Simulated assay, not measured.
Amino acid sequence: MKIINFDNSEKMRKRIAALYSSVWNEDENVIINRLEKHSTYNGFKAIIAMNDEEQIIGFAYGYNSLKGQYYRELLENTLTSEQVTYWLENCFEFVELAIHPFQRKKGIGRRLVNLLLEDVANKTAILTTQQDNIPAKSLYRTLNWKVIKEPFLPNGAAGKSYVIMGMELDNNI
């Protein structure tokens, strides 16, 4: 396995979208558009895991969480003012982690999380994951993420239930 940086080419976005779609069953165009938009955000960072056959088997990305961003506003609306100040004022938002189903339980997710946060100059990192995604929650807990709020309903009471997790970063550069 090798780790490469995201190059923001159309070909790379399509390859990532194909993996994402196989993991989350989401329309590939949705993730392509999301990547195009998010790659323009301040502090955007993405890394990709590839196998020996040059197939993408995992990816992770995030960016600086800033006022005015859609998801940042959702988080601000659900957290207390103290939590907003502590967790969001100098925050890296860990947006996506996807590992091919046949490549799980091999340490790829752990490696991508650690490498993505390496050299990030923020005080904290924040993420959300589905409340019923036990493998993801377990991975994040072993990497010292802590639950900030559970449940989190970003789409109201009718939507899927999530958990907000945060991590204090000590690699400020």
Rank of each mutant, 00 (worst) to 15 (best):
K123G: 13
S161N: 11
E168L: 06
E76I: 12
K137Y: 00
E10P: 00
V113E: 06
M1T: 10
Y140R: 01
G58I: 04
N5T: 09
I134Q: 10
D7A: 05
G166V: 01
H100C: 05
K146E: 15
Y20F: 13
G68K: 04
G68H: 04
M12P: 03
M1V: 08
Y162P: 00
F59E: 10
S22C: 02
I57C: 10
E54C: 08
N114Y: 03
G109Y: 05
I173L: 12
Y71M: 06
Y41T: 00
L19W: 04
V163C: 03
Q55Y: 03
Y61F: 15
I134A: 11
G159S: 05
G58D: 07
K106H: 11
L117A: 09
M1S: 13
G159M: 08
Q55I: 08
L117N: 05
G58P: 01
V95D: 12
I108L: 10
E76T: 10
T129G: 08
I134C: 05
A158W: 02
K2R: 13
A49S: 13
T78M: 09
Q69A: 05
N8W: 03
N144R: 14
L79I: 04
D132A: 09
K149V: 07
T142I: 02
Q69H: 11
E93P: 00
S22H: 09
K105A: 12
N155D: 15
W87E: 07
N90V: 02
R110A: 13
G43Q: 07
G58K: 07
P154C: 05
E89C: 06
